[in-house]
Amino acid sequence: MGNSIQDSQAPSLLDKVKTSFRNQSVLLVATLVILGVVFQIASEGIFLTTGTLATVLNDWGSYILLAVAQTFVVITGGIDLSVGSTVSLSSVVAGWVLVQGLHLDSSISGDAAIPYVLLAVLVALLVGLTVGALNAFLINILKIVPFIATLATMGAMSGMAIIISGGMPLQGPNDFNLGIPYTVFGVQLPISTTVLTVLIITVIAGLYLHKTRFGLYTYALGSNPFATRAAGISPARHITKVYMLSGGLAGLAGAYAYIRLGAGSPSNGAGMELYAIAATVIGGVSLMGGVGRIIGIALGTLVLFTVQSGLLMVKVVQVSPSLKQVIVAILIAAAVAVQTLQKNGRK
């Protein structure tokens, strides 16, 4: 009957332990616990406080949407270098619409600013989707490889951001309360409205990646584009959707930056694409495509910014800012090494 094609080994306890260590999320949670303890001691007890955690989560909120965007793109086997400059451009255009278009300024604050903030979010989202569509055009129609296509867009969009803003921040109406952590029954939590919103978007993105046909095609395309096409799926159409999703999320990250700073500035997204890529690598996404989970990305981004903030909070020794950069670089290299070891372990 052909049922001889069977695998016979039953998993032993050792295998189970090994498997769980190969699971990126378990490793990342363990890393976070260790980092938390180390920084708590090194900071003389100020790291695990609401104030620091709120800052870590605020940074997490700035970058997680880009990391999620990058995850979808990288799983298809591509890369999107334009996400950082899309943050700059979308926040600048949002600021421009409010300041130059509607002639408003930062004197509008608190609840009165909410409608304008929502307008800024909408504008930033539209700008992001447009940049994504442009990337898809370059990749699908002009057949430019994603690295070069999005590198070109990255340059063009940061240039546009400078032209539109005149190189200066555009300060418009804002409600800073959106970024202030909640206080519930007198207890301050480390989570604000903006962070909570971003968290919800991340969960939805995770459900879409892991539970829907859209996510399945994303993996299929990165895993075997030929098989995907043979199964009757149009790669170009899916690539377009993925890059527009990436652009849209980068646009929302631009809105986040606008709310965080109360201004659209052409440097709001400076260097963010590199952190987003680093976060995806730490989170277990393979740059070869086909591999990655949103929970890993969420934890990977958290590890990255725990280290960023943690090193600043250290009191027992003075960590110079330059040494901080070196430590973050070592962390990223270590994450890649762990991935490679895991991969070899499977073979």
Binding site: S43, G51, S62, S267, N268, G269, Q308, S309, L312, P321
Partner: peptide
């Protein structure tokens, strides 16, 4: 008491100041 780098990004500068306010 402390210095930190923003790497040209105002969001990073914002994060540095937030941490200082705790520290």
């Amino acid at each position: 008491v402390d210095v930190a780098y923003s790497a040209s990004n105002p969001q990073t500068a914002n994060s540095n100041v937030n941490n200082w306010l705790t520290k």
